[in-house]
């Protein structure tokens, strides 16, 4: 029988562990510092986007989220689970009156809470700084961007958990998560662009391939929350706006949700069936 109380206990432990994790704290301080700096820079200089106040800062923070949150989410998810398995704490925990689902979900929610804290701190500090400067504007879009950043963090964490099911060593999990991060952040974009140019790929194909990347889903949906059109993304953005219109935001959000749910279920199924892996 599934007991949510066990999930809560394990999540609380994971949250506390994350807050004691030196690397996590460095990530958080760096993210918050850069968010604050971007809000200040955004106010003092023009950007290619015609935003003001919260909208301008949200636009700047999107790029920061695209770099930082996948890195933290992937590495935290993959190394935590792989590390617990490698050092034997996972096996010892599973020998207690808990089940796999409670353990995996507890760990997931605990780490998710710590990621939410990082995002909230970064966006919160930037938001407070804007308010102190007397800025107003699209606060709703700003908050929506925060929520979408939460979803991206969950998706990256799910992917990290899923990757942890395939590696035996923590070092491999770290290497794998950094590779996937590079793939999603840089190689994915450049690869699609390069392939599109060389093969003269139709614009709709470029769009659909790009939408397989959870980072692009976040980018599209968050831009849509702070402005109505995707013109800023060029011809692909124009195509997407024309083709999908108002349905694009819910579709991109559903895409992000699928990136959360599918890898997490996959990770749970793999861990439940990998008794020899856990108990090696």
């Amino acid at each position: 029988m599934f007991e949510f109380e066990n999930v809560r206990i394990i999540a609380a432990k994971e949250l506390r562990d994350s807050l004691r994790n030196r690397w996590f704290l460095i990530f958080t301080v760096a993210f918050a510092g850069l968010a604050l700096a971007l809000s200040a820079i955004g106010q003092s200089s023009g950007t290619q986007l015609r935003f003001s106040g919260y909208g301008r800062t949200a636009a700047s923070l999107i790029n920061l989220v695209l770099l930082f949150i996948p890195l933290i989410g992937l590495t935290l998810g993959a190394t935590n689970l792989a590390g617990d398995r490698e050092n034997g704490t996972l096996a010892y925990l599973l020998a207690q009156p808990v089940n796999h689902a409670e353990v995996i979900l507890g760990k997931y929610l605990g780490m998710a809470a710590s990621l939410f804290a990082t995002i909230t701190l970064g966006f919160g500090l930037a938001g407070v700084a804007l308010a102190l400067q007397g800025n107003s504007g699209d606060v709703g879009g700003y908050v929506a961007t925060i929520v979408l950043a939460y979803l991206l963090a969950l998706a990256m964490l799910s992917l990290g958990f899923f990757m942890a099911a395939f590696v035996k060593k923590t070092a491999s999990a770290l290497g794998g998560s950094l590779f996937v991060w590079l793939l999603l952040v840089f190689i994915g974009d450049l690869g699609i662009m390069g392939t599109a140019v060389v093969t003269q790929m139709p614009i709709e194909a470029v769009f659909f391939i790009a939408m397989l990347n959870p980072l692009q889903l976040f980018k599209v949906s968050s831009i849509l929350t702070i402005q109505a059109s995707l013109e800023v993304l060029g011809p692909v953005g124009v195509y997407a706006t024309e083709q999908f219109g108002a349905a694009l935001l819910p579709l991109a959000t559903i895409g992000l949700l699928l990136w959360i749910i599918i890898p997490l279920i996959g990770a749970l199924l793999l861990f439940t069936r990998q008794e020899k892996f856990v108990w090696s």
Binding site: I9, I10, D17, T89, A91, Y92
Partner: peptide, 25 residues
């Protein structure tokens, strides 16, 4: 109750460890 050959614990104090497992149990 299970005692393994070489128990590995999370990065906590003795009291925190026992509190964590007491709650689970």
């Amino acid at each position: 109750g299970y005692v393994p050959q070489e128990a590995t614990f999370y990065d906590m104090s003795v009291l925190e460890t026992l509190t964590f497992y007491a709650r689970l149990k």
